[in-house]
Design a protein around this nucleic acid. Structure first.
Length: 1146
RNA sequence: GGGCUUGUAGCUCAGGUGGUUAGAGCGCUACACUGAUAAUGUAGAGGUCCGUGGUUCGAGUCCACGCAGGCCCA
């Protein structure tokens, strides 16, 4: 049996053939089944959505996932990994709408919900084949045969189970959220509807800077030190109609604010106002700054002002103010209302740096109010439901209307028609005649009232963009709409605590991005008003007095059965329910809309209950996968228990608030556990210039093409070795080429070299292991390095640092193994007989290759497989049929020889220095030189170099090394202060001491070395220096050419004696003859005869005395010097021409 | 606007706890080697360590403030 030899390496082919091998031999299945009974390592697959084609970033994500699953398998764990598909949600619906050319409004009208959902179901798995294809081709091992699918009934049932658990814990409730709402169509608008072209329009609205009167108490006392009148906080709004429902003012904590004394422009009363310092110029003219407050007369156009003091926003927090329009009172938490709070969205770009907050009509307002416990201004209807101050038609409720009407009468405001309390629409939804001279919007009426009441500081028209309904063109309001929430805020502290036990890579994503987000958690809005998704399993009576949450099919069946006896249900409803029961029994139930919507059940009090129309957020689907993928708790309880929580997950960093959160939240709330212990969040894959890949820019990299031309291994290796996975990857195809050449090329060359000679020598590793002690220095060195590498690599994988592992392996393969070990030991493989030394060389190189195959197998699974099998098929050292079924190499700790590694480093450094000297004096390596001198001040270093002397000599073609120790007296030494040590001791005097030491002459250095201590005087003070305080090196030997680096110095004797010259000439001749042989296409074993035409005396003598050497090197049987050689080649020997001919003799 | 993050050679990236010549690979230039050969080695050129302040005897490294890019929010 021979080691397979390759003409060239086709990386894509390696991928294909190994893939076939895996399939035929079910290697993936075996990698799981062979670990049966072993501890499990659990991985959760984040489900991709297959309604789009996979991109190159999926290669990245899947590589990371694969690496650690394969690594843990090598470590002996059983790693089950189930694939999955995310199948619900808006993106799919939008795609179907587009395909069918319909809008949301058509659903249920021109197309039935039933047909529509059927289309969604088809669309969602559209590109499954492509996904599976990519998954296979990049070698991502995951169970594609039995994936979990979020639209399957079993999956939905598990999700319902979880929802019911939340419901029972009181963590699922109906509340409201602020959403875009169009009173003119009576419906909410989705964010994508708002993104329709033409939705945002330029409009002119009335804007008000309102004056909020500060309450004088201990908190606000600092504002009352020298006021001229009442103190007000100024806040600006472009929606005056929200002012009656104001309950708080938001400021920026870091923003600087000022208090300004001035006069109100409408009432001329003295006022003291607070606003952001940066915005003072907006309201107060620079040219009025010298006016005296005392000189102001009511009606003056130029209003004087005086800045009294400045302070940061932080100081204002908690300040109380009087309600601006006290028409209604909050019906709960009233004591919390009307105070200053901090808002992270406050800027000084517009307005006053203070934001009027109305929790019912702004998303920011709602959120910040919730965080600070500020109540909204609402009223209760008879059923106890909370209602905002504006109704669904866009009109102020009567309670407010009455007050506004009072204002209109009191201040004699002229209107285009008499207004009743029911006429105050916040925008013109009733198509009033705006051209009427007395037409006034509600906003204008509010401004007039505020002006009259000394509550408006400035009123003006303001042009801005504002969203409008794409159907009716009427303005949209931000309005509270019903929704179901999960009360994540109730378990916030626990979620934060649990998060601290998770190992995040990188750490900052966990503590920063994710941690901060948890700290500022708001309740999770679960509702979606769509069609294709998991239906909310809650049934409610029409008056909302009774409700129930269904947590399983069994429970649903029971409720259905109960309902059949109830007289409240119509015959048709009963009929439907009966058919539902049948379908559940048959197992072909579909829990999607519209079918679930038909279910009507009966409450304990005998009332009919209908399903809440909402679907749930798709993120809940994916966050439920740890349970639902196993149809837990209805099936597979044991599998679940053994595989929860996950040891490892990985997704893009953009999933922080998506999947990472939903997994964490559900696990924390329902199981008081983390869902995952280790998580790698990967960065983005950008194009090579750092731009996002987009179809528009045309810089999208097709993963299939990339794999086809570069193969999976190089692609994977490149992505990992280039930068840590959490950094953004600038994806450059040239980088893959480099990886191919530099890493895989070198590794493959090393294998080819091994295979070539091992085959010639019939080395199949059948001989018994040659003990380490009997191997050469360089064998033991590379084995030591190899073991250090195993240790380093295992540690890196263990710490989820694949880049560190890849880089360590790559350095080993290219630098240590190929460029040093193989290069230095080449001759051992092709020269001489098959003896112990040769076997040792083969065994050593084999071990390196085999170990490297295992180490790289998580990252480059295909090539690793080929390399491993090529080796193992011949040697049969391991019984496994795949590297992925083998075990991760164990560190042979005694084989790690620190001293040896140091020695070899010395040899490498010295060789490099000699090369550098040769280069400087243009003496080529072929020219032997007699000796190098190395000054050694420490006996240990001398011994180390002596051990590797032979290596150095042959590497740089030198005859001998001479050591100069201290006693020679010819060394010139250099002294350098040890900053680290002295700095700690002398601190500020460091500079002077350093100067002093550097000025030392040879005498002082000698004295210090002899006495081990030296007392010097620094500004009259005695300073005692010891040997540890300095570093003494020898960097010069007078009369020699030297090179130094890192305290190591080498001197080179460049005298070329006649003997050396002759040797050099013969080496040159060997070189030329070898070239000729190659040109003639001779095989290694072909024998030749060399005829040389006599040249000058030196050359002749050189050839004569080195005849044997030349013949041995060139496989020549004879070398003849002749007066004349027919048909000779004129060889350029740099400084002379040699006429020479070679002939094959057989 | 906020949170997180990145900025070191033409390019891609290393540079524990601060310590005095800032490194590697690629690319470029030159040379060498020539039985691993569509390989390989050595050397050279190439740096405002994003900027400005600060702390320190000493800052690529620590702090503050900026600038520029990225992601997620708003």
């Amino acid at each position: 049996m021979k080691y397979k030899e390759y003409k060239n390496l086709d990386y894509a082919k390696v991928g294909e053939s190994v893939l076939t091998y895996w399939k035929e031999n079910k290697i993936f299945e075996q990698s799981v089944s062979s670990r049966e009974g072993k501890p499990s390592f659990t991985f959760f697959e984040g489900p991709p959505s297959a309604n789009g084609t996979p991109g190159i970033h999926h290669v990245m994500a899947r590589t990371i996932k694969d690496i650690f699953c394969r690594y843990k398998t090598l470590q002996g764990f059983q790693v089950k990994r189930k694939g999955g598909w995310d199948t619900h949600g808006l993106p799919i619906e939008l795609q179907v709408e587009k395909e069918l050319g319909i809008t949301k409004d058509d659903i249920g009208k021109t197309i039935s919900i039933e047909d529509y959902n059927k289309k969604c179901r088809e669309a969602v798995m559209k590109y499954t084949d492509q996904w599976n294809d990519l998954t296979e081709k990049i070698g991502y091992w995951v169970d594609l045969e039995h994936p979990y699918v979020t639209y399957h009934t079993e999956y939905i049932e598990s999700v319902w189970f979880l929802l019911k658990k939340l419901y029972e814990k009181g963590l699922l409730y109906k509340g409201y959220t602020i959403q875009p709402y169009s009173p003119s169509d009576g419906t909410g608008l989705s964010s994508h509807e708002l993104n329709q072209p033409g939705c945002y329009k330029e409009v002119k609205d009335t804007s008000i800077v309102a004056q909020f009167k500060v309450v004088n108490d201990s908190k606000s006392a600092f504002l009352f030190t020298k006021p001229v009148g009442d103190v007000f906080i100024l806040a600006w709004t472009t929606t005056p109609w929200t002012l009656p429902s104001n309950t708080a003012l938001a400021i920026g904590e870091k923003i600087t604010y000022v208090q300004v004394n001035t006069f109100n422009a409408y009432t001329h009363k003295p006022v003291s106002v607070v606003l952001a310092k940066e915005l003072v110029g907006k309201y107060f003219s620079e040219k009025n700054k010298d006016l005296k407050l005392s000189a102001y007369k009511p009606g003056d156009k130029a209003i004087p002002f005086e800045v009294v003091q400045e302070f940061t926003g932080k100081q204002l927090i908690g300040t109380r103010y009087e309600q601006l329009m006290p028409y209604l009172q909050p019906f709960y938490d009233a004591d919390k209302a009307f105070q200053v709070i901090a808002g992270d969205f406050v800027t000084t770009e517009d307005g006053t740096g203070v934001v009027h907050t109305s929790p019912t009509f702004g998303a920011d307002d709602f959120r910040v109010a919730k965080q600070h416990g500020i109540p909204a201004l609402t009223i209760q209807d008879e059923a106890g439901n909370e209602l905002p101050t504006v109704d669904r038609k866009g009109k102020f409720i009567r309670e407010v209307g009455i007050k506004l009407q009072e204002g209109v009468e009191k201040y004699k405001i002229k209107t285009h028609k008499p207004l009743s309390p029911d006429d105050f629409y916040v925008k013109n939804y009733t198509n009033e005649d705006e051209s009427h001279p007395d037409y006034k919007t509600t906003d204008v009426i509010i401004s007039i009232i505020l002006k009259e009441e000394n509550k408006a500081f400035k009123v003006e028209k303001y042009e801005h963009t504002y969203p409008h309904s794409w159907r009716t063109d009427k303005p949209v309001l931000y309005y509270p709409l019903d929704a179901w929430f999960i009360k994540t805020t109730a378990v916030k502290d626990r979620l934060v605590e649990l998060n601290k036990t998770i190992n995040w890579k990188p750490e900052s994503t966990g503590s920063g991005r994710f941690g901060n987000w948890l700290e500022n958690l708001v309740d999770w809005n679960l509702s979606r008003s769509r069609y294709w998704g998991t239906p909310l399993p809650i049934w409610r009576t029409e008056d909302g007095s009774e409700e129930t949450c269904i947590g399983s099919l069994t429970e649903l069946k029971e409720k259905l059965a109960e309902s059949l006896n109830a007289k409240e249900l119509t015959a048709e409803q009963k009929q439907r329910n009966t058919s539902f029961i049948e379908r559940i029994n048959k197992g072909n139930i579909d829990l999607h809309r519209p079918y679930v919507d038909d279910i009507v059940i009966v409450s304990p009090k005998g009332k009919r209950m209908f399903r809440e129309a909402d679907l749930i957020d798709v993120w809940f689907d994916s966050g439920a996968m740890p349970y639902a993928q196993w149809h837990y708790p209805f099936e597979n309880q044991e599998v679940f228990n053994n595989n929860y929580p996950a040891d490892f997950i990985s997704e893009g960093v953009d999933q922080t608030r998506g999947w990472f959160f939903t997994l964490h939240a559900i696990a924390g709330m329902l199981f008081d556990s983390v869902a995952f212990k280790n998580v790698v969040s990967t960065g983005l894959v950008l194009d090579k210039n750092g731009n996002k890949m987009s179809k528009r820019l045309g810089n999208v990299i097709n993963p299939f093409e990339t794999l086809k031309s570069f193969g999976p291994d190089a692609t994977r290796w490149y992505m990992i070795v280039n930068a840590p996975p959490w950094d953004n990857l600038k994806f450059n195809l040239e980088g893959i080429t480099e990886v191919q050449r530099r890493f895989f090329g070198t590794l493959h060359n090393t294998y080819s070299f091994f295979a070539l000679y091992a085959n010639l020598d019939n080395f199949t590793y059948q001989e018994k292991e040659i003990p380490l002690a009997q191997r050469t220095e360089s064998d033991r060195w590379i084995i030591s390095k190899l073991n250090s590498l195993i240790k380093k690599t295992a540690q890196a994988y263990d710490e989820y640092e694949p880049t560190r592992a890849a880089r360590a392996i790559q350095d080993f393969v290219t630098d240590d193994l190929s460029n040093w070990y193989v290069r230095l030991n080449r001759k051992r493989f092709w020269k001489g007989e098959y003896n112990e030394d040769k076997k040792a060389a083969y065994q050593t190189l084999y071990a390196c290759l085999e170990t490297v195959a295992k180490l790289i197998s998580p990252i480059a699974p295909f090539y690793a497989e080929q390399l491993f099998l090529d080796l193992n098929k011949v040697s049969k050292r391991e019984e496994v049929v795949s590297v992925h079924l083998s075990h991760f190499p164990k560190v042979d700790a005694p084989a790690i020889d620190q001293n040896l590694e140091e020695k070899m480093a010395l040899a490498q450094n010295i060789s490099s220095l000699v090369h550098s000297l040769r280069k400087k004096h243009t003496i080529k390596v072929r020219q032997p030189l007699s000796r190098i001198l190395i000054p050694v001040l420490q006996a240990k270093v001398k011994a180390q170099i002596q051990d590797v002397e032979d290596l150095i000599l042959s590497e740089v073609n030198i005859k001998q090394v001479e050591y100069i120790d201290d006693t020679s007296g010819i060394l010139v030494k250099k002294i350098k202060p040890n900053f680290k040590k002295l700095g700690k001791e002398y601190g500020p005097k460091m500079k002077e001491i350093a100067a002093l030491i550097q000025a030392f002459g040879q005498e002082e250095i000698k004295k210090l070395e002899k006495d081990k201590t030296l007392s010097v005087s620094l500004n009259g003070q005695a300073v005692n220096l010891t040997l540890e305080d300095v570093e003494i090196t020898s960097e010069d030997i007078p009369g020699w050419i030297v090179a130094s680096e890192n305290g190591l110095t080498v001197a080179l004797d460049i005298t070329i004696t006649e003997e050396l010259k002759k040797e050099g000439i013969s080496r040159d001749v060997v070189n030329r003859v070898q070239n000729l042989r190659k040109d003639m296409g001779l095989e290694v074993q072909d024998k030749i005869k060399i005829d040389v035409q006599l040249s000058n005396d030196l050359v002749n003598a050189a050839l004569e005395s080195n005849k044997e050497y030349i013949c041995a090197e060139t496989q020549a049987l004879e070398l003849n010097l002749q007066d004349q050689v027919e048909g000779a080649n004129a060889l350029d020997m740099d400084d002379f021409i040699l006429n020479l001919k070679i002939t094959v003799v057989n």
